[in-house]
């Protein structure tokens, strides 16, 4: 702390006040209004919620959202783990380059990265052209507006949120543990399964939860890369608000998503540790 003292409660509050005020005005107040409407318009009760949960169209969107978020998390984990492992065992220039490769996308707009995927995946995009030139396909194949494309692009966009907590957890595993395991007769695979994996589990939980929660509410990427067949809940909310002007029903959808997210966070509250994101495993 400045001056070496802990802050008094009043000082802490004063320092945090600008942020808390902003949070109140642009997040909590609108959200509360929306939820209030979902419960009282057109008539008081859970009618909007029942509508969302009973109508098969909406239920399908919610289940699809869960499935896509789950697949995105899985893919991100599989892609991020080896990268985080290499980073945790690198030093100097190598680590700086890898770190930049992970963080740079985080500093560019999600929109830009999503458009990049569109350029790659569209009918006469880079991938189709390459496949055609290699003689593997006659006609361009449909890549864009598929669930696979949505999962792939979202996993890519959310990758840093998986890499960082994994890196932090793996960095905390001293080299001597895997070495000891090998001396004791463990093959590389057994060393991973019995020692490295259990020791990095807190980072895995942290990263998976973060990516899953972000994926649940993701808007830009699924809206642009997926078609109507891949609609996720955020797109549905936006549609209700902008096209149908049905604020109370959108509020109910948001309420359901919020309840789900809160339940998950409570369930895994021990794993949601901010320090994992700033490198103090």
């Amino acid at each position: 702390m400045l001056g070496g003292r802990r802050f008094s409660p009043a000082a802490s509050l004063a320092l945090a006040a600008p942020f808390l005020l902003l949070l109140l005005v642009v997040f909590i107040l609108p959200l509360a209004t929306l939820l209030h409407e979902s419960l009282f318009v057109p008539s008081p009760g859970l009618g909007n919620y029942a509508h969302a949960l009973e109508e098969p169209v909406y239920l399908r969107v919610m289940l699809r959202t869960l499935r896509i978020a789950f697949l995105v998390t899985l893919l991100a984990l599989v892609l991020a783990w080896p990268l985080a492992w290499v980073m945790s065992r690198s030093r100097g220039l190598g680590l700086a380059l890898l770190g930049a490769a992970v963080l740079l996308p985080l500093w560019t707009s999600v929109l830009v990265r999503t458009y990049a995927w569109m350029v790659l995946l569209q009918r006469n995009g880079v991938i189709n052209q390459m496949l055609a030139r290699l003689g593997l396909i006659e006609q361009p194949v449909r890549l864009l507006y598929t669930e696979g494309a949505v999962v792939l692009a979202m996993a890519h966009v959310l990758l840093p949120f998986m890499v960082l907590p994994l890196y932090s957890a793996l960095k905390g595993i001293p080299e001597d543990y895997p070495r000891a395991a090998q001396m004791l007769g463990a093959s590389p695979w057994a060393t991973f399964r019995e020692v490295v994996w259990p020791l990095c589990l807190p980072g895995v939980t942290s990263g998976c939860l973060m990516v899953f929660l972000l994926a649940l509410g993701f808007f830009v990427t699924p809206a642009l890369i997926g078609g109507p067949q891949q609609m996720m809940i955020a797109t549905l909310v936006s549609q209700q608000v902008r096209e149908l002007l049905d604020w109370p029903f959108a509020g109910a959808l948001v309420g359901i998503l919020l309840a789900f997210v809160l339940a998950l966070v409570l369930l895994f509250r021990r794993a949601v540790r901010l320090d994992r994101f700033v490198g103090q495993a």
Binding site: D176, R179, A180, Q182, M183, L184, A186
Partner: peptide, 20 residues
């Protein structure tokens, strides 16, 4: 020969026991 096939015992300076 890789370490896991040498059948040797080893005690390190520290961080020797698996914490989990």
């Amino acid at each position: 020969l890789p370490p896991n096939r040498r059948n040797l015992g080893m005690v390190f300076q520290r961080y020797t026991l698996f914490p989990h």
